[in-house]
């Protein structure tokens, strides 16, 4: 297992390096001189631009600049926001909890809805719950989460008035954002788990364990789910990335001061260091989560462990 974790972590290193190169390249790829972009609208003279060039090391070769950038990253320095003049690290740190709580709550919604529906639909395929679950999952994928958010606000906040729309104080304020964001993913979990269970129950070993006299619940827990959940787990890892990205629109609608709304604001204000910082942090979280999920996958499914260890 230790070998597996090490190998998997080693695979993440080139990806992470690539991520830093791409994030570094954002400033280089913007048409025009970076220093000029930074001083945009300040009416700076060419001499001032040249001075900032030197100050930021922008007159050096790009490769050298990249290594300087990488060196700063390793010390946790993401630069300064042009707008607030605070360090990007502190700006992100103050907003990260809002995004993480939203993403976590949305994942919880997806799992709490998706797992029971998936199990029932898988065990009784073709039944009423299965038909319903299939319908829900098709709609879940098709309905844009930001539109769902609006429909939920209409019903629960405007018509019924039982849940708050704005604010971050109470846990109740997290309900609507989390449901809007997580709902679509519950559909995917339902479908994967259902198909996984149906496939697992077709295998001969299920018949053997039944012949051995295992009860329905034990069968489901020990053999059915263990086989069915592997593919679900790896997809949940991928979905966390999409939940993080989806928080951009959801935070904008619900006025949550998280990373997503900060990103939108930074793009609008051309605050490039903040954009670079947020994008980098989200990609890091995403790569990290997928690493953890792959390890979990290997813990559940010994075949994965063996395939890599060989």
């Amino acid at each position: 297992m230790a070998v597996f974790i090490l190998k998997r972590a080693a695979q993440a290193v080139p990806v992470l390096l690539g991520v830093t190169i791409l994030v570094f390249a954002i400033l280089q790829l913007i048409p025009g001189n970076p220093a000029q972009i930074l001083l945009l609208g300040t009416g700076a003279t060419p001499a001032q631009v040249a001075q900032l060039d030197r100050q930021l090391g922008l007159d050096q070769p790009v490769v050298l600049q990249y290594f300087h950038y990488l060196g700063r990253l390793l010390t946790g320095n993401l630069g300064y926001s042009y707008v607030t003049q605070q360090t990007v690290t502190s700006e992100i740190a103050s907003r990260l909890p809002f995004t993480l709580s939203l993403t976590g709550a949305a994942l919880l919604v997806a799992l709490l809805v998706g797992i029971p529906l998936g199990i029932i639909a898988g065990l009784r395929s073709g039944g009423l719950v299965d038909t319903l679950a299939t319908g829900v999952s098709v709609l879940g994928v098709a309905v844009p989460y930001f539109w769902l958010a609006i429909l939920l606000i209409l019903v629960f906040a405007v018509k019924l008035g039982i849940l708050p729309v704005l604010g971050t104080g109470s846990p109740a304020a997290l309900v609507l954002p989390a449901v809007s964001l997580g709902w679509g993913y519950s559909g995917i979990i339902t479908r994967l788990l259902r198909n996984g269970l149906i496939e697992a129950y077709q295998r001969p070993f299920i018949l053997v364990t039944r012949a051995k006299g295992l009860s329905g619940w034990q069968l489901l827990w020990k053999h059915g789910l263990r086989n069915a959940i592997a593919s679900t787990v790896s997809v949940v890892g991928l979905q966390i990335g999409y939940l993080l990205a989806g928080s951009v629109a959801i935070e904008t609608i619900f006025g949550r001061p998280g990373l997503g709304s900060f990103l939108v604001q930074s793009i609008q204000e051309k605050d490039i260091p903040s954009v670079q910082g947020i994008v980098l942090v989200v990609a890091l979280v995403y790569v990290g989560v997928n690493l953890v999920v792959d390890v979990l996958h290997a813990l559940i499914d010994p075949r994965i462990r063996r395939a890599v260890s060989v």
Partner: peptide, 10 residues
């Protein structure tokens, strides 16, 4: 893989 490390919208 590097591009996929950024979820679509990002």
């Amino acid at each position: 893989d590097v591009l996929l490390a950024f979820p679509g919208l990002l």
